[in-house]
Design a protein around this nucleic acid. Sequence first.
DNA 1: TATTGAGGGATCGTTGAACAATCCTCTACC
DNA 2: GGTAGAGGATTGTTCAACGATCCCTCAATA
Lengths: 234, 234
Amino acid sequence: MAEQLTGLAGDRALLGRTSTAERVSDILRSRIAEGYFPPGTRLSEDGIGGALGVSRNTLREAFRLLTHERLLIHELNRGVFVRVLTVEDVEDIYRTRSLVECAVVRGLGAPPYRLDRLAEAVEEGRRAAAGNDWKELGTANIHFHRELVALAGSERTDELMRSVFAELRLAFHVVDHPRRLHEPYLARNAEILRALRAGDRHGAERLLETYLADSLERVVEVYRRQVGEDAAGT
Amino acid sequence: MAEQLTGLAGDRALLGRTSTAERVSDILRSRIAEGYFPPGTRLSEDGIGGALGVSRNTLREAFRLLTHERLLIHELNRGVFVRVLTVEDVEDIYRTRSLVECAVVRGLGAPPYRLDRLAEAVEEGRRAAAGNDWKELGTANIHFHRELVALAGSERTDELMRSVFAELRLAFHVVDHPRRLHEPYLARNAEILRALRAGDRHGAERLLETYLADSLERVVEVYRRQVGEDAAGT
DNA sequence: TATTGAGGGATCGTTGAACAATCCTCTACC
DNA sequence: GGTAGAGGATTGTTCAACGATCCCTCAATA
């Protein structure tokens, strides 16, 4: 009986996941991720609440969840807006990524490492590239780096970086040439994976460091141009 | 005129007023931090709401904010409780600290560094120790490490670690011998500061690494005993 | 023409109330 | 001693209402 109960305890997470606010935030999150709500969009309580058929309180809780993930910003008495990243934000995101991701690789113990999920992310990227789905490739890239962080085995670090990656996606949605932005990094992800497979975490760290520096440069370049255009259009 | 306006823009943060829920959560956060509400305390909606004179809805909003910060946990139909960290939580906190703090020190550029705030935290610790105020010394220790992280100059990293340090304080409140827990590290903080002053970031990183390993060991040791007692008492 | 100020509509912030669902305690019972 | 059930207390959820704030419009003024 005892082991049956402890086995059941694992299912509790599923049972507790029935919150309406979480489901609403899931919907909004994917809408934002797919660009349906572009950065800067205001999400009105009445509009969204009416469309989804949930009460204002529930919706506000969903907003709060997404605000905590930095996908929305909340302005008092004005409502919530899809976050618009500044170039400084993008730079800070990469600063944090470089700090944490490199530290994770450096802090890996002796090989071998559990790289199956990392390899799966590379495969996912290959499939996306083969199908010319560049947005999907961007998602796969993010998965790769999330799995990289997961190698540290720290729940908190995972959560910290998850929100950073979610922010990064906001930046990706502003740019209009996803292929130029994501394609070069597929090969470099594979390269990092190869280095880790060989047990060369030092080499992997170096690769990662230049990877992030290059990626930042490119994102900022494209991003700055895009933001400039938007500002001119306003 | 233009430069006056850009100068004014910096004051906008001050202007951004806070909602009632935020103010309530500020109050509760500092109460929790100072140990007024020890871990495990149940915060009843009626009790707190009545004492603070806010409605249940507003209070629940404040609870949600703090739950997102991991300071409270929410049990369905039972209410919210001040979080009780498990030993695994403490270990994960230190895992994250070690990862990030060491990475920050390693990632410092060429000296000299802006160490005034770090030095101020050490001074704060000295004053607390001189006054035999060991809880205050724990706070000063946390300040030291927060300022250490701030050297990276990353807004996101700062915020990430702020919540980790807030959690850590929860652990500190469980132990009953704060002197044994905090006193040894005052000298070691000063030592790290000295290494950084000398521009020896490599040495500082090594000091920090052993510091965190030792601190974790001691906290876990004391913590495990305390938690064991509590479990026996229940 | 540009700026200022008043007014109105829309939206958000907060409260209070209501009712359902759940938990906890205490009692009665076997 | 252990169990079942009743009752009270607390939380979960929704709704309606009102005040506060923001934004837009428009007229008055320099």
